[in-house]
Write a protein that binds this DNA or RNA. Structure first.
Lengths: 258, 258
DNA sequence: GACCGGCCTTGATAGCTGTCAAAAGTAGCA
DNA sequence: TGCTACTTTTGACAGCTATCAAGGCCGGTC
């Protein structure tokens, strides 16, 4: 759960010899994520206005924080590449991972209500985000009804997916939680046109457990059980879904009818 | 978890002899919830425009559904008086209560992403809601930046409070879950200037358990334990918080440092 | 006032997950 | 190649919550 400064230094050095200029010059207009992210449904002119806003694209290295709880909300961030985890720390000091945002998903939406971030965002692998100044975004929304509607859809979708997690946390056993987690990841990758049968998990067993309300040993045991049952194949963090339908049926049937 | 049609009939008859005309003629401008709900921060002229939108105020009796999963999203609903529960049904048929909305809270926000409700809203006691046609609301938001911002704050706040529940579901033991539930209820009542030491719970033990990921027997046991420890007093659903600070400390200290 | 059904409480037991512990696997580095 | 630190896996056992069961309480009805 803690960040290795050493790791960051190493990544930093790798950074120094690599140029990201080309990728940073990407615009929403030709971004492969425009059918998932904020630009969905906009015409060329509208896209241009949004592009003017999202001028800063930023690289975040594995282990690095993009923002921390308490930071004033200046920008929302859309994941352009890579993987993040968002965790919140309770008053009692307990950490809870609330999301694993991936390509095309917005981070920081929960900060609007208080003008300050509540969560901490850490890159799980070398990643890239598009920062969207929030005050200017809100101003633009008034001019572009379609953008406003898409923004509302993304906010609403965040609530809906949180409810999905509540369902997992509240009704499922450990085995089903892990199965549902893998399916969710696979589905989201698939929706982005990425290979979704073989997944390289960017998070540790402990992080999966924290997210699902389980201990890391239990997560490991459930991976083993799903493997022994022939539903998945595992090789460290590389996980292959062998029986997609069986896995889904397992989640559907649930433990017992309530 | 199922609705008693008989109860509804009884309530319906009670309705017939009572006039709600006076309360239904309420406007946002003089609503006691304007500092919590959508009108927060608006001037008189803006309030007027919002009032024009929110013309339909509707009574919902205990046990009655306001909307059901699958219903097309036409209006958001703000609770004006009373108490609701929102529950979702998974593909496998499991029900999960995701919220207990009370005065000043919006229902149906998660429906924007798909234009259809995902949850089911049931009144836990005779209640009243203000229905806000969503398409017209979005149009008005473009004209009223302050209303737009407040709407975004409410959406964001819904995400934030969902994260709070995830924290409860993911990190707390049964005793702490129940303690946190009572505190949350008490705090929200207090924020509305209502008595918050003695609470009449509008939901059953089973509903509390469903919300918290516990069985009803466990909820009952935890009520008994908190009572035996002198933190609360109980008399059926009437619950008094005797040691507010001790209850909060209990939640803060948590089970064990992670 | 007596009956009835739903909700709540309490007890005994079983099962699942957490805890503690140790060994094996993996990645990075000298 | 060998070392080190971290992650993952697996086992044994304890503890918490679910399950099954019985009895009490309360409101509503006749």
């Amino acid at each position: 759960m803690k960040t290795s400064g050493f790791l960051n230094d190493r990544k930093m050095r790798r950074m120094a010899v690599t140029s990201f200029e080309a990728s940073l010059r990407q615009r929403c207009s030709n971004c492969s994520l425009r059918e998932i992210c904020l630009p969905l449904g906009l015409d060329a002119e509208e896209l241009g206005k949004l592009d003017d806003l999202v001028k800063r694209r930023r690289r975040v290295f594995a282990g690095q924080h993009l923002f921390r709880a308490g930071d004033p909300l200046q920008s929302l961030a859309a994941v352009r590449a890579g993987f993040f985890k968002i965790y919140e720390v309770s008053a009692g000091g307990h950490e809870q991972i609330t999301a694993f945002p991936m390509e095309g998903e917005l981070m920081g939406l929960d900060a609007i209500s208080t003008d300050a971030h509540r969560g901490n965002a850490v890159a799980l692998e070398d990643s890239e985000v598009c920062e969207i100044p929030f005050t200017r975004l809100e101003a633009l929304l008034s001019d572009l009804p379609r953008l406003q509607h898409q923004f509302h859809k993304l906010l609403s979708g965040a609530i809906a997916s949180d409810h999905g997690l509540m369902m997992v946390l509240g009704t499922m056993t450990a085995e089903l939680k892990v199965a549902a987690f893998l399916l969710n990841l696979s589905d989201r990758l698939g929706a982005r046109g990425q290979p979704c049968a073989i997944i390289h998990l960017p998070m540790s067993r402990e992080e999966i457990g924290n997210y699902l309300g389980l201990k890391l040993e239990t997560v490991s045991r459930m991976f083993s059980r799903l493997r022994d049952d022939g539903l998945i194949a595992t090789e460290g963090r590389k996980t292959e879904i062998l029986e997609h339908k069986a896995l889904r049926d397992l989640c559907l049937q649930g433990p017992l009818r309530a």
